[in-house]
């Protein structure tokens, strides 16, 4: 029984926000997610780390069904993920997603990037959406760039806008799929600062990352994946100072020895 499964069975009355139950996924012959069980509580920040190809991005993307799964179930706030259609769109509106490559809408201004979802999906008036967007852009520190296009911003600025865009939908949980992996080193901090801020604000977050510093400062739990399996999960302190599995020791040895 994994730690997550233990946690889920003793969950509080409101229950965990995200539950993955015996999730399996194959890409052809490749078994990318192998019997994943995991529960994420409200307000919890879970960092998923692991070598490339370990399935951590796929796991993250499966939670808002950008990747379908072959077997098992994923529950969000007590409801199973809808298969398709309007219900699936509604679910995705509740789950914020931040991508490695930002994926800001290239033909829209920064402000429009943030307001498009609230206006078209949440049916907010343009005025309300603009106010909301300005507030969020201010919060992530790019308010003065509101009328520029994504291509005119640095990577770090674009990623912060992407976070604001996701927050504008007032999501229950935020997914971060390697949010700093495409950034120059000097821009990583500005994005992580925003994320730490969010974590402190009580946002439920699932973060796939290689940023061990972020995991130490902000995570409640570290999940280590390898070859499609959850190998180990623990508090950041325990995990980094005293990894139990050989694969985690090997991985940490490779990335921390610099």
């Amino acid at each position: 029984m994994t730690a997550a499964a233990r946690e889920s069975s003793t969950a509080s009355s409101t229950g965990p926000l995200v539950v993955l139950d015996h999730v399996n996924k194959w890409f052809g012959d490749l078994h990318v997610l192998q019997d994943i069980n995991m529960a994420i509580n409200r307000g919890e920040v879970v960092v998923v780390i692991g070598p490339s190809g370990s399935g951590k991005s796929t796991l993250c993307r499966a939670i808002n069904r950008l990747e379908t799964i072959n077997d098992g179930s994923i529950m969000l706030d007590g409801q199973p993920l809808p298969q398709e259609g309007k219900q699936l769109a509604n679910l995705r509106a509740e789950v914020g997603m931040v991508f490695q490559s930002f994926n800001l809408f290239a033909h829209k201004t920064i402000l429009e990037n943030v307001t498009l979802g609230p206006i078209k999906v949440r049916k907010l008036s343009k005025k309300d959406a603009d106010e909301l967007a300005q507030r969020l852009l201010d919060r992530v520190g790019v308010a003065h760039q509101a009328n520029k296009y994504p291509a005119q911003l640095s990577g770090g600025q674009q990623q912060r806008v992407a976070i604001a865009r996701a927050l504008a939908m007032e999501p229950k949980v935020m997914l971060f799929d390697e949010p700093t992996s495409a950034l120059d080193p000097e821009m990583i901090k500005e994005v992580l600062d925003v994320m730490v801020d969010l974590a402190k604000g009580g946002m439920t977050m699932i973060v796939v990352t290689h940023e061990m510093g972020f995991a130490r400062t902000a995570a409640d739990r570290v999940v280590f994946m390898s070859d499609g399996q959850i190998v180990e999960e623990n508090t950041p302190d325990e995990f980094f100072t005293n990894p139990r599995s050989d694969r985690a020791k090997d991985f940490l040895g490779k990335i921390l020895k610099h």
Binding site: R92, E94, G96, M97, V121, A162
Partner: peptide, 17 residues
């Protein structure tokens, strides 16, 4: 890029939107 459509779907837009 496929990421544009993924981002659109992630904020809750349907296929048509």
């Amino acid at each position: 890029s496929a990421g544009q459509a993924e981002a659109a779907r992630s904020v809750g837009m349907g296929f048509g939107q």
